[in-house]
Simulated assay, not measured.
Amino acid sequence: MTAAYFTGLALGLALIVPIGAQNVFVFGQGVTLGMPRALWAVVGAGLCDTLLIVLGAAGTSVLLDSVPGLRPAMLVAGALFLTYLGVKSLRTKPADFDDLTGTWSRGQVLRQTAAVSLLNPHAILDTVGVLGAAITAQAAATRLPFAIGAVTASWTWFLILAAAAHGMRRFLTKERRVWFDRVSGVILLVFAAWLAVEFVQTFV
Score class of each variant (00 low, 15 high):
residue 70 L to N: 09
residue 176 R to K: 13
residue 195 L to S: 06
residue 185 G to Q: 07
residue 47 L to D: 02
residue 74 M to W: 01
residue 47 L to Y: 05
residue 191 F to V: 14
residue 118 L to A: 01
residue 54 V to K: 00
residue 75 L to Q: 02
residue 27 F to L: 09
residue 48 C to T: 02
residue 96 D to R: 03
residue 107 G to K: 01
residue 99 D to M: 11
residue 18 P to Q: 04
residue 179 W to P: 14
residue 34 G to M: 07
residue 162 A to F: 06
residue 2 T to F: 14
residue 195 L to N: 04
residue 25 F to I: 11
residue 50 T to V: 06
residue 77 A to F: 00
residue 195 L to I: 05
residue 53 I to V: 12
residue 29 Q to L: 09
residue 74 M to F: 03
residue 68 P to G: 10
residue 155 W to E: 05
residue 150 A to D: 01
residue 63 L to M: 12
residue 148 I to M: 13
residue 126 D to A: 13
residue 127 T to D: 07
residue 188 L to K: 13
residue 97 F to A: 11
residue 146 F to A: 07
residue 11 L to D: 08
residue 130 V to W: 02
residue 153 A to F: 04
residue 141 A to I: 09
residue 155 W to N: 02
residue 200 V to N: 14
residue 18 P to N: 11
residue 167 G to I: 09
residue 95 A to S: 15
residue 89 S to K: 07
residue 135 I to K: 02
residue 19 I to S: 09
residue 117 S to H: 00
residue 143 R to Y: 10
residue 150 A to N: 06
residue 2 T to L: 12
residue 69 G to A: 05
residue 39 L to H: 06
residue 161 L to F: 09
residue 77 A to T: 02
residue 138 Q to S: 13
residue 157 W to K: 02
residue 165 A to N: 08
residue 173 T to Y: 14
residue 162 A to K: 06
residue 38 A to P: 09
residue 33 L to N: 08
residue 27 F to D: 05
residue 153 A to G: 07
residue 86 G to N: 10
residue 96 D to L: 05
residue 37 R to H: 08
residue 107 G to I: 04
residue 61 S to E: 03
residue 61 S to K: 02
residue 92 T to E: 06
residue 15 L to F: 03
residue 110 L to M: 08
residue 77 A to S: 10
residue 153 A to W: 03
residue 198 E to M: 08
residue 181 D to H: 13
residue 77 A to M: 07
residue 109 V to R: 07
residue 138 Q to D: 13
residue 180 F to D: 08
residue 71 R to N: 08
residue 159 L to R: 00
residue 176 R to T: 10
residue 204 V to C: 13
residue 166 H to W: 13
residue 27 F to R: 02
residue 45 A to Q: 01
residue 71 R to I: 00
residue 154 S to F: 00
residue 136 T to N: 14
residue 40 W to C: 04
residue 144 L to A: 15
residue 192 A to S: 15
residue 60 T to Q: 06
